Simulated assay, not measured.
Amino acid sequence: MPELRLIDPDGYTVPGTAQTVPDADEPAVRQLLLTEVAPQHAAHWADFGYHPGDYRVLPDPTT
């Protein structure tokens, strides 16, 4: 089971997005993070030039 996290344009983990998911759920969770969470976070930080298309989902490199 991978641990996924949403990474902002500056390379930081978006708070509250690190989660361990079953292998079968990984595509759905990735999609949710990119289509729902990233736009919300980017809107909050829009004054700093954040755009939802600049976010990515990564597995935790320590796992």
Rank of each mutant, 00 (worst) to 15 (best):
M1P: 06
M1G: 01
M1V: 01
M1F: 02
P2Y: 00
E3V: 12
E3G: 02
L4N: 00
L4K: 03
L4R: 03
R5F: 05
R5Y: 01
R5P: 08
R5Q: 12
L6S: 02
L6W: 01
I7M: 11
I7Q: 15
I7Y: 13
D8V: 04
D8T: 08
D8W: 03
D8P: 06
P9D: 03
D10N: 06
D10S: 07
D10Q: 02
Y12A: 14
T13W: 01
T13L: 04
T13M: 04
V14K: 08
V14M: 07
P15V: 04
P15R: 06
P15K: 03
G16A: 07
G16Q: 03
G16V: 01
G16T: 01
G16S: 02
T17I: 00
T17V: 06
A18E: 07
A18S: 09
Q19K: 14
Q19P: 06
Q19L: 06
Q19S: 10
T20G: 03
V21M: 14
P22W: 08
P22G: 13
D23M: 09
D23E: 15
D23S: 13
A24M: 08
A24C: 07
D25G: 06
E26S: 13
E26I: 09
E26N: 07
E26V: 14
P27Y: 04
P27M: 07
V29I: 12
V29P: 01
R30A: 07
R30Y: 00
Q31Y: 15
L32V: 03
L33Y: 00
L33F: 01
L33R: 00
L33C: 05
T35R: 13
E36S: 05
E36V: 05
V37Q: 10
V37Y: 00
V37K: 00
A38K: 00
A38N: 00
A38T: 08
P39N: 13
P39I: 07
P39A: 04
P39G: 12
H41E: 13
H41N: 05
H41A: 04
A42I: 08
A42Q: 04
A42E: 10
A43M: 12
A43R: 12
A43V: 15
H44A: 10
H44D: 10
W45F: 14
W45A: 03
D47S: 11
D47A: 11
D47M: 13
D47W: 04
F48C: 10
G49H: 11
G49E: 06
Y50W: 11
Y50V: 08
H51R: 07
P52H: 04
P52A: 09
G53V: 02
G53Q: 09
D54Y: 02
D54I: 08
D54P: 09
Y55C: 02
R56Q: 09
R56S: 15
R56F: 12
V57N: 03
V57L: 11
V57P: 02
L58M: 15
L58C: 15
L58A: 15
L58D: 15
L58S: 12
P59G: 10
P59T: 09
P59A: 05
P61L: 05
T62Q: 15
T62V: 12
T62H: 15
T63M: 11
T63G: 11
T63K: 12
